[in-house]
Amino acid sequence: MEDAAWLALAREAASRWPLSVERIELAARRENKVFRLITVTGQHFALRVHRAGYRSDAELASELAWMQALSRGGLAVPAPLASLEGRMLEAVKGQRVSMLSWLAGVPLGRSGTPLNIASREGVFRALGQTLARLHNLSDAWSPPPGFTRPQWGLDGLLGPQPLWGSFWAHPRLEAVQRRTLERARAAAIDALGGWMPALDFGLIHADAVRENVLIDQGRIQLIDFDDCAYGFRLFDLATALLRNRAEPDYPALEAALCEGYRSLRVIDTGQLQLFLMLRALTYIGWIVPRMDEEGGVERSARFVATGIELAEAWLGSR
């Protein structure tokens, strides 16, 4: 669909909500199409056109219910807005659409670009606290009937059909790389299976990468709950850290994130290196159906290199 058609769909969708819209503009073209709506009174909202076929209606409704609970609990996340019909999710021309409050701020950074933020350790300490608050609020919340989200458990990470694809079957792996990933998978299944009873598990954001962490006057905000799920809490920490490993002060950033988290919630980070590897491996599976997109081959090579590096390091540390 051309941009003009997407914009027309956004205009029609916006009419389903109790807003007097003055301007609509495309804000992000990622997994979902995100439009910024500006009302005649100067308020800003985010209209999301959800990627077709990625989530069921029940999963989308569950995502919105959780975001609403987190927002009401005081966490800085987008808050869903009910439509004129009282629904959080609307169908417009075969597309699923939702409306959220707009969060101001700038991303923590961009993947592949050195971090350019002040008070680096302070920011990561605050991010750790934000993730801890998210987990605390989630554990105190009772999901509504029918609540359903994916599972980043043992099967979702390492089973025969992981959530993001069979990373060990990536078509561009060299033979030695494939053997390394197969060995890492087998060892991780064995290790994770033994540690699971002691690991904290529950609702997680699952995608707190740089682009999804907004900073507004020192306040940490989380956006893009598209991949929120049930999973290991260490998975959230690993996701926040993985793409910062090239930073010269990475050890200090990792320590600050964990310190911030522990200031509000207990967590055993003894297996953090395992989860950094597991998080890296998920991207190897994720990129396979996106290889034909612009830059897909280059991203794939980076993901494979990172996954192999972390797999070799973790296997060597056992």
Rank of each mutant, 00 (worst) to 15 (best):
R48E: 03
G156H: 10
D139P: 07
A76V: 09
G307H: 02
R183G: 06
R290K: 08
G194I: 02
R120Y: 12
P107H: 01
C228L: 12
R110G: 06
D292T: 11
A79V: 03
L7P: 00
D249R: 12
A184L: 01
A13S: 13
E309S: 13
D57V: 12
E293T: 13
W168V: 10
R16P: 03
A255H: 14
R185S: 13
R72D: 08
I308M: 10
L137C: 01
S138D: 05
L64Q: 01
A28F: 11
A61C: 04
A311C: 08
R233S: 12
R72M: 06
Q273N: 08
P107N: 04
L242N: 13
G260C: 06
A301W: 02
A82S: 06
P251N: 00
F35M: 04
L173F: 05
A187I: 00
L181K: 02
R290S: 06
S101V: 03
W141C: 02
A246C: 09
G165I: 15
G194Y: 00
A14V: 10
A91M: 09
D3E: 09
A65V: 06
H50S: 04
A255G: 14
L154K: 08
L64K: 03
A126T: 10
R55W: 12
A175Q: 14
L70A: 01
